[in-house]
């Protein structure tokens, strides 16, 4: 498993890979006026791997309930992304496109093998390293994932019982 220290060592290489990764991604997806964000294929596996690490123990452990909650969380994140300006949606699309690329996953995120096989520990290590990374681009990517997964999760009534929030006055709901 990649340690925090090895992340710091690969700084320059990482920057180059990131730029190249973006270029490769754009070659595969020619630029046009930004389209709305789509979550497909490996990008979906990226989000499915990150959500449990981000949400932690608030996801239920029983497998069927966990799978349902995970789907729910991903749908909420997708809806939140669709509320952003198209140019910002494209930045998020590029981030997922980058993370879906094998070399970027290994070098930048330190996750070997596919996202579907990544252990929760490896994903948490990846998030922690980007959280404090000296490359601003990776730090902002971490913060975007943080806000886009945690924000919408706690915006929904199903999460409120767990945090002792009674919700708005029911008599005034429309």
């Amino acid at each position: 498993m990649t340690t925090r220290r090895s992340f710091l060592k690969i700084g320059a290489a990482a920057a180059i890979t990131l730029a190249a990764g973006g270029a490769i991604y754009r070659l595969a997806h020619p630029p046009a006026l930004p389209n709305p964000f789509t979550l497909d294929g490996e990008a979906k596996a990226v989000l499915a791997a990150i959500v449990p690490a981000m949400l932690g123990p608030v996801l239920p452990s029983e497998p069927a309930a966990r799978a349902a909650a995970l789907d729910d969380a991903m749908a909420r994140t997708l809806a939140a992304i669709h509320g952003l300006p198209l140019s910002t949606q494209k930045e998020v699309q590029d981030l997922f496109g980058l993370l879906a690329l094998g070399p970027a996953r290994r070098l930048l995120a330190g996750v070997s093998g596919g996202w579907a096989q990544a252990t929760p520990e490896a994903v948490a290590a990846f998030l922690e390293s980007w959280r404090h990374h000296r490359l601003a681009m990776l730090q902002t990517a971490y913060l975007a994932l943080h806000d886009l997964i945690l924000g919408p999760w706690y915006a929904e009534p199903s999460s409120w019982v767990g945090i002792g929030y009674p919700g708005p006055l029911k008599e005034l709901l429309k």
């Binding site: 690490a53 981000m54 949400l55 932690g56 123990p57 608030v58 948490a124 998030l127 959280r131 943080h146 806000d147 945690l150 924000g151 919408p152 999760w153 706690y154 915006a155 999460s159 409120w160 767990g162 945090i163 002792g164 929030y165």
Partner: peptide, 23 residues
């Protein structure tokens, strides 16, 4: 909740513990 969840740093167990103290 959304404002606090996005403003609170960190993720996973630590973030969940902070949110559990919401009130």
């Amino acid at each position: 909740p959304l404002l606090l969840a996005t403003t609170t740093g960190g993720f996973g167990a630590q973030h969940a513990a902070d949110m559990a103290q919401f009130p």
